[in-house]
Amino acid sequence: MSEPLVKIQSLSKRFDTPGGFLKKRRSMLAVRDVSLSIARGDIVGVVGESGCGKSTLARLVLRLIEPTEGAVCFEGADLTQLSRSELRKMRQRMAMVFQDPYSSLDPRYRVADALAEPFVVQGQRVPHGRIDALMEKVGLPASLTQSYPHQLSGGQRQRVGIARALALNPDFIVLDEPTASLDVSIQAQIVSLIQELQRNLDLTYLFISHDLGLVRYFCNRIVVMYLGAVVEELPDPGAAPRHPYTRALMASTFAPNPNARQEATELTGEIPSGFDLPRGCAFAGRCPNVTAKCRETVPVLSRGPHPVACFHPIQG
């Protein structure tokens, strides 16, 4: 097997909230010991519910924030060890599409300026015709280059976000819930665009979403996160879930088929706060298969083709 394009090794991120008058200083592990290899041309999906650490992982992978522990290697080079100038160079090869297209675009910048920004950051001149070419790539009319973000629809704004990510011809793009704020009709447009770009430009994706149905349609490998840690890696999108949480996520996706009505999930309760993680398995409080051992000991992600972090995985 050739070297992975991106190798994430035991990444952890701790956030501390400063104490104050009558307030305890608290700290939480937003990402806990996450490892992942991404081969060139791969589309790896990350799913999980709100607050499970998806955006934090995304920002760690591109070193937009510093990890508390662990490393990210891009073609073998450890990003966390690079100097500023080396990192900036490396950054041309990777890009990010953000969760909320509205807040990721500066309201005072016209579309053309937003698309020129990556070149400016790199100290480069914008190649002649590049802006129009980018617009065309993402299916936007060139006439919109002079518009401001508020004059665009949500879908158009997200297309601008994608065009900006493509500006420097990256190899690797992290997409953080690129369709979460859009109507399903527009979500499907954007997903179809992202798929086409991946094929035509030979891109590698880390695609983050809370929608397991979407990720199963779109990705060839899926990582499921719960409260900062990976609980399961599905080797292919059709793989049957082995972790009870993955199964619950699957049962929570409403299939558009009235002839196959689903039963309610056996899940109870809601996600606990990351500030007071339970001692054993983080999912123990909601899990239908929980035993005494689960409440005492933290399960580790198993090795092999279909890793799962559970003492009582579902047998296939």
Binding site: E49, H210, A248, S252, T253, T265, L267, E270
Partner: peptide
């Protein structure tokens, strides 16, 4: 959240 959505529906 998705699991909560499903429960509530």
């Amino acid at each position: 959240d998705v699991t909560v959505q499903a429960q509530i529906i």
